[in-house]
């Protein structure tokens, strides 16, 4: 009898938690909607930066691209407009723009971008509030990002 009661209690707890998650769960999707201006791009754990001070920022970016693979897309001083739950408009420095599909993964801390040519980008959302968004280029779940992108809400 006690076992059945325990089972029912735990089952009800699971249902209660589910309801709480649906009502009060995290809503990063809502927080992310809006226009974000990229204000900085920082490098972490890139060894060659310390070895060679003579490299220009474009050379460093190219080397990073070689290190991380061709799927790595360089974003520089862009404006990202998260229009709705799946559409992101990226405004480039030169005036061009691109429409990208975006999704959140895991517990809402992984941002997946899908470009038209089926190139995927994954970022770990390290910080997200009303004014600031910090993304780390996603390598794997246990590693910290090599590239850190910081955005401010416009």
């Amino acid at each position: 009898m006690r076992g059945i009661l325990m089972n029912i209690t735990l089952g009800l707890s699971a249902i209660a938690l589910f309801i709480m998650v649906t009502q009060f769960g995290n809503q990063p999707t809502d927080d992310i909607i809006g226009v974000w201006k990229e204000v900085s791009w920082d490098y972490e754990k890139v060894d060659f930066l310390n070895q060679s001070d003579s490299l220009t920022i474009d050379e460093v970016m190219e080397q990073t691209k070689v290190q991380l693979g061709e799927s790595f897309v360089i974003h520089k001083a862009e404006v990202w407009e998260f229009i709705d739950n799946s559409t992101l408009k990226v405004d480039f420095e030169d005036g061009n723009e691109e429409i990208v599909d975006w999704k959140l993964k895991s517990k809402g801390d992984i941002l997946k971008l899908t470009h038209e040519n089926n190139v995927y980008e994954y970022y770990t959302i390290k910080e997200l509030n009303k004014d600031r968004m910090v993304l780390h280029f996603h390598i794997d779940l246990n590693a910290r990002g090599i590239v850190k992108l910081t955005f401010e809400k416009v």
Partner: peptide, 25 residues
């Protein structure tokens, strides 16, 4: 102090716990 995330992760942990509980029960 990110309580909405805490709730989500706790829900996941609880489900794993509940699965093991049911199996042994």
């Amino acid at each position: 102090g990110n309580w909405s995330q805490v709730l989500m992760v706790f829900f996941w942990l609880f489900l794993f716990f509940y699965g093991s509980f049911i199996a042994n029960y």
